[in-house]
Amino acid sequence: MAKALKEKAPVSDAQPAVAIDPTREPIVVVDDLHIIYRVYGSGGGRGNAATALMRVVKRENRPQMKEIHAVRGVSFIAYRGDAIGVVGTNGSGKSTLLKAIAGLLPPAKGGVYTDGQPSLLGVNAALMKDLTGSRNIILGCLAMGLTPEETKEKYDEIVKFADLKPGFIDYPMSTYSSGMGARLRFAIAAARTHDVMLIDEALATGDAKFKRRSKAKIDELRKDAGAVFLVAHNLDVIEETCNRVIWLDEGRIKMDGDPKEVLKAYTDATGK
């Protein structure tokens, strides 16, 4: 692991250096972050009990365990009021970076410093899929620390924002389409002012109407002096919503700056 880090060190030096802007207040500081995680293969065709036993006896690691060095020395500062788009090809480490900021992946080296606890909205399934939409709203609000009274106040707002088809609010969340689920989850998470909100493709499944409203919500969060990170493959969404774009390539920052410039360079490079 240490050896891998050393080998990559000269390359990570090529990333744009971080300039500290003393006039603005930081909310997320990512300092030379390395993320390495392990994946386990199915063991090919030899995944039977006997081989598993031999492995335990010989004290070997599980078969086909690969170490993936997904983020390689990323540094940047996000300031209050930033909406940062993260772009990059599949497997460039975008989602991994967001998970690390949320504290869900431990850094192998370096660190992530945040003010408050970031909230991560991913594409994965519903919050509590066997419960109805309205239960999800109430429980989600209570879990985030809202009082029962505040939950009652916010309830109608969330329902209105999620804009589900009539009646769906009383169905289990497992029956929702991916777009509906994403809308409801976003609506619930946005009911509380988060300092840092990480959105991983969660808006991609929404329709045009929802995109407009979620953009308004993100602007509102920015005005409350929070920061929003947005991962999306739809570059239009990023261009409309974000004031800054980070382009990740193979776990390194390739460019960090004004959306127009970065997105132009990105589309030129990926040959769109």
């Binding site: 250096a17 971080v18 300039a19 500290i20 207040e25 930081p26 909310i27 997320v28 500081v29 990512v30 300092d31 030379d32 540094s75 500062i77 690390a100 900021i101 949320a102 504290g103 869900l104 660190g111 992530v112 410093y113 945040t114 003010d115 606890q117 970031p118």
Partner: peptide, 21 residues
């Protein structure tokens, strides 16, 4: 890179940011 006098971690600590999670 003129701000190299202050490390990022130090900058974060000065603004009261804490290690995520």
């Amino acid at each position: 890179n003129g701000q190299s006098s202050e490390s990022l971690a130090g900058f974060a600590a000065r603004h009261g940011l804490k290690q995520s999670a």
